[in-house]
Amino acid sequence: MTTAGLDPVIHPVKRLAAMSILANSHSVEYSYLRERLEISDSDLSKQMKALVDAGYVQTRKTGIGRGGSTIFAITALGRTAYTTYLDRLRGLLGGR
């Protein structure tokens, strides 16, 4: 059994968790994602940048300054990549 064929952008645990949340959401606030993943600001920024750079996630800013917030949403490309990842993972795990 190998991990070949699984998207390397999604495969890391933190990014996979983020994609799972985003795939089931309309949009997700930065602070919510940080709490759910239980990671630091810098780590979350790094993980989300990788997903944004791959075109899987888009960001939107609301408000200004301290009251502002960053909102993440999955893109059509991201949803396709996530679904493909799930299918391949199920296949590797024997259809479970």
Binding site: M1, T3, V13, A17, S20, I21, R36, L89, L92, R96
Partner: peptide
């Protein structure tokens, strides 16, 4: 390595389940 990969994949499946269902 095969056992470790299988464990890695099962861990990914668990991550997906947790992240999808918990909230």
């Amino acid at each position: 390595p095969e056992a470790s990969t299988a464990a890695e994949l099962r861990e990914r499946a668990a991550v997906i389940n947790r992240s999808t269902l918990a909230p």
